[in-house]
Structure formats: structure tokens, C-alpha cells
Amino acid sequence: MEGWDPNTKSTLTQIPLLTIKSGPRDGALWTQRLKEEYKALIAYTSMNKSKDNDWFRISAANPEGTRWKGKCWYVHNLLKYEFDLQFDIPVTYPATAPELELPELDGKTEKMYRGGKICLTVHFKPLWAKNCPRFGIAHVLCLGLAPWLAAEIPVLVDSGTIKHKDDVATSSES
């Protein structure tokens, strides 16, 4: 965990760790794991709200809890940039991490794979492998997506690749 800022580190210590190593094909054990995922997400979301650092919404898009949808946002120069967020729980979960997708940014940055999957190879995958099965969805968001947004969004905004929704509205009117 060298190289991570103290803020992220302290946040991380407060997200409950998971214990059950099971994936979507494991039946009842997956339900147990799903409960742990919810507990970690509830803790992380409440913590963000209490620290006035709310930055995502995520909920299961199917009853099995294998597909998730929501939104995430990032504030840059006092403007809020919001994106759709979605991912599948892979069949080999938790041995492999979910691949987070920001479909609206597909093709707009090189730090992304096909279909808007953000590139986590260097900064996150080794951490996930080391901490299996204790990391869950909340941890991917905290250590995978948050730093990615912090690194990419300012570059995308400054280069004009993405525009704030208010700017888009005014430019299309004129």
C-alpha cells in the first residue's frame, strides 16, 4: 500500500473486510457473500456521506446480485461530472475483480479497455490478488475507481474531451 495517500488509507481501514470466498455459481454461499458485500457498501456509503465525500450510487440490477448499476461523479474546478457506472460479477469472483465500466467514456481515453472498462492493471489488480477474498465491491470502488477518476477526469476535462453538461446545453442552444 505504499504510494497511497493517507486519506484513502484511513478510509480503507474503515470499510469492513469480507470473509466468505464464494462467487455467483456457489448458491447459498454466494448469498452469504452478497450480504457481506452489502454491509461493506452500506458502511462505505455512510462514511462518505458523513465526511461530505459522497461520490457514487450503486445497486444490484438483478435479484441474483450478479449485475450492478449506478452512477459515479467527480468534482473538478467546482463542476460536477457524472457518469453511468455498471459491472458484472464474474463467474470466478472473488478470485478475479469485477471489471468496472463507464460506458459514456468508451473510446475517450486510452486508460480504458473495450466497452468502457477502466484500466486497473497497475494500480489495483495486484492489491486485489493479495487481499482475496477480503476485498469486495466497496474496495474496488475505493481503490480502483476513485483513483482512476481522480487521475483521468481532470485530463479529459482540460483536453476538452468531455464537457460539463451545462456547457453542452449552452453550446447546443447557440
Binding site: 466468505i20 448469498t31 452478497l34 450480504k35 452489502y38 452500506i42 456509503t45 456521506k49 450510487r57 445497486s59
Partner: peptide, 25 residues
Amino acid sequence: KQPITEAVGPADDLEELRRQLEALN
């Protein structure tokens, strides 16, 4: 390896947990 303990209480129902997250959302 921690034994899988069935925690008791209202916080261990999947539907209840889902509702809690939705309330926060």
C-alpha cells in the same frame, strides 16, 4: 480461516440490507 458464523439480528437479512443501501442511495 474464520468459521462462517451466521450472525443474528435484523442486519443479516439480504432484503433488509438491500433496503438499507437503497435508503442511503
